[in-house]
Design a protein around this nucleic acid. Structure first.
Length: 141
DNA sequence: GGTTTGACATTAT
DNA sequence: AATAATGCCAAAC
């Protein structure tokens, strides 16, 4: 398989995974990478979402059927990548009932304990500790 | 066409 | 507790 074919396969896998995020919930770049069996590539998840085709493109996956706005970073923050981009994402989330707050630095956050995001995936060694701490998680492979 | 940049996360210092 | 190094690689420059 050629390099560009692999890249496309990866991007499509990302889009399909993002489509699994339920309405009104969010998850992280790292979680998507983990679900795809590539825990060291969270960054490439962002790359793929950046190049998500728009709804008019006629592509199978596009901004109209892939909920890109439900993906945030591991700190629970909406990553900013251009003027107004984070605000638009926050608005899209509020639109579906996800509360977004702004901290002292003007950063936009989604609080996982209150507003629910996909559970973290933890390796079995850490799972016990997390359970003791009452943390929300699922068992990783 | 080589180099830098960046929608990230984890580990090491 | 901060900060740096590392892995990753398509796009942009």
């Amino acid at each position: 398989m050629s390099r560009s074919e692999e890249a496309e396969t990866w991007a499509n896998a990302v889009y399909a995974a993002v489509q699994e995020i339920p309405h009104g919930k969010v998850t992280t770049y790292g979680h998507i990478a983990l679900l795809l069996g590539e825990p060291q590539r969270p960054r490439q998840v962002g790359v793929s979402l950046k190049t998500l085709p728009n709804a008019e493109s006629g592509s199978h996956f596009h901004s109209g059927n892939v909920p890109w706005h439900r993906v945030i970073n591991a700190k629970g923050m909406i990553s900013h990548r251009g003027p107004g981009s984070a605000e638009r994402q926050a608005e899209a989330l509020r639109q579906e009932g996800v509360q977004v707050t702004r901290d002292g630095m003007g950063e936009l956050y989604v609080n996982f304990s209150l507003y629910g995001w996909f559970p973290k995936v933890l390796p079995s060694e850490e799972a016990e500790d997390a359970e003791n701490d009452g943390e929300l998680f699922v068992q990783g492979s």
